[in-house]
Each structure stands twice: as C-alpha cells, then as structure tokens.
Design a protein around this nucleic acid. Structure first.
Length: 302
DNA sequence: GATTCGTGGAA
DNA sequence: TTTCCAAGAAT
C-alpha cells in the first residue's frame, strides 16, 4: 500500500454527511412540498408527479391538486377521469390513475391518512421502492436509503468513482446507500433530501458544477480525473411515431372534451388506422379511457 | 432483466 | 435539428 496520507480522504460516510447537509441548509430550493403545511399527502402527491417529470413542470399542477384535493379522501371521492384530466400534460397519465387508486386505498384501509409504515406505502398502487422510502423519509423523518436517479449519480461519482450509475438500481448500490446512511434518524432523513438536492442542482447528469460541490475534494470520480462513462450505451428514447405519441394525442382530445366524444373525433389525431386502434385499445385496457355503449369515449367515471 | 409508458425544455 | 433526460413503476 502506498502512502496516501497527503491525498484527500476517500469518501467515507461521515466525511460526506456534514458538508452536504450544510450545503443543503444554505442552498435548498423552497419547494411547496417541502413546506410543513404540505403534510404527508402533499409529499406523496409531489412524489407521484416527480416520477420522471421535472420540478418546473410539476409545481403549478401540484398547487392545483392540493387546492382541489387537500386530503386523500377528497381525491378518492372523485371519478378517476378527473384525476387524469387534472394531470394535464405531466406525462405518463397512468400515474394519475395510480395516485387516485392510492387515495382510495388510503381512505378505505388507513382512515384517510397516508401511512407512515414503509411496507404499507409500498403496497399502494404507483408506489415502488423509491417512492415508499421518499415518503417515509421526507414526510415522516424516517431512516431509509432513498435511491432516486440523483442520489444514485452522486453516490456513483463520490463513492464509486464512475460517471453514471447502472441502468437499474442494483444490490450493490442499495448496500452502499445503506452503509452511507447516518445512524441518527433525523440526520438520515436530512441526508436523503440533501444528497438528492445536490444531484439535482450541482452533481447533474450533464455539465456538473464541481466548483460548487461541497464534497468535490473527496469525490472519487473527480479525483480520478472524471473518466468518461464506460458502461453499455444508454439508448435514447425515440418518441415520434410510437404508440406513446398516439396515446398522448388521443388522451389530449379526451382531457379537453367536456362531453363524451365520437370515434370520428379520435380518428383525426393519427393517420394510420391500425396503430390508432391499437393505441386506443391499450388506453382502454389501462383504464385511462372508457368506451360507452353508443360508440362514444370519455375519461373513466369509475 | 429488458420494455413500456408522455411531455417538453435545454444543449 | 436531433439528442438527452427529468424525485420510477409495473410487467
């Protein structure tokens, strides 16, 4: 072993927490779902909306939702189609359906309060590994490894020394995240939010700003000379011409409509009849569109 | 484990 | 203009 006593310390757990949390105290964005009045329901709604959708687009829709449905029971009492309509253009509208379903489950099984138990959260529709940990940590201050794309990138760089984490979360990443979790519950929750914010604002996927990073001196990736990503090519997602685009156009028509629309109104959104029919069928299968007996279509009423 | 599922802003 | 990618989940 060579003498590395003059080199910066490697990124062990304790040396990361303090500077990252201190940075967070100074630079955290004032987001509505971080305010105390948001409550667990506000945190949960924001987490659904933030799944693959940027903060800037979520913010206005979030405000509308919380004003209209301040508690889970308020949303649960609505037709699911109203959730889909209010989802607007956030994308991935199945999230709206799942959030509505989660609100119903909370109303029926949890007395109308967002559960604090991780396993109970995980059992709700639309809540997976990340969101369950996020709600438990952000809303209830619990100690969980919150592994979103930001945290995974921060850990990949600071601790592992690679530019990007693997495509899907691995067991190795989970183990690392747990090992780096502060022992104290409140500190762990703070660390989760802080490390995520660092990835969102400074340690970004493109154009990372190491000059503003509180742990740049201990970052394994930077110390290694920031080697380029060596893993498999991350194939870009084409969109034009896909079923997803057709589904999006079909649903846009139904969101704007105040009454059920005829087939002919849906036919105008796409020229190719086979793909058009396949997309509509898939929307019906997903429960996002409700076909009526008279050949009309609408957002789901039940 | 690989695919599918929207949308729009920025580089 | 094209490409990247943004607090993932479900299958």
């Amino acid at each position: 072993m060579t003498d590395t006593s003059t080199d910066p310390a490697p990124a062990d757990a304790a040396s990361l927490h303090t500077p990252v949390i201190a940075w967070f105290d100074e630079h955290a964005r004032d987001l509505p779902w971080r305010r105390p009045e948001a409550g667990a329901w506000g945190v949960m709604v924001s987490e659904f909306m933030l799944q693959q959708t940027p903060v800037s687009r979520v913010r206005p829709v979030y405000e509308q939702w919380l004003a209209r449905w301040p508690r889970p029971a308020d949303l649960a009492a609505e037709a699911p189609g109203e959730a889909v309509r209010a989802w607007g253009r956030l994308g991935y509208p199945r999230r709206a359906l799942r959030l509505h379903g989660a609100a119903q489950a909370i109303t029926e099984r949890h007395g109308g309060d967002v559960p604090s138990d991780h396993a109970q959260l995980l059992s709700l529709p639309g809540i997976g590994e990340y969101t369950a940990a996020a709600v438990a940590s952000f809303a209830y201050g619990q100690r969980h490894a919150v592994l979103d794309t930001n945290v995974r990138r921060v850990l990949a760089r600071a601790a592992t020394g690679i530019q990007f984490p693997p495509t899907a979360t691995t067991a190795v990443e989970r183990k690392l995240a747990r090992a780096l979790l502060p022992d104290d519950e409140a500190t762990a929750a703070r660390w989760a939010a802080a490390s995520m914010e660092l990835g969102a604002l400074v340690c970004t996927a493109k154009n990372e700003d190491c000059a503003r990073c509180p742990i740049a001196a201990r970052c394994a990736w930077r110390l290694a000379g920031k080697p380029a990503y060596a893993g498999p090519a991350r194939r870009g997602q084409t969109y034009a011409g896909t079923d997803r685009q057709v589904r999006g156009r079909l649903l846009a028509v139904l969101r704007e409509a105040v009454a059920p629309v005829p087939q002919s109104a849906l036919d105008t959104v796409w020229h190719e009849p086979v793909q058009r029919a396949r997309a509509l069928d898939s929307l019906v299968a997903d429960g996002l569109v409700e076909p009526l007996e008279n050949g009309l279509y609408r957002l789901p009423h039940s």
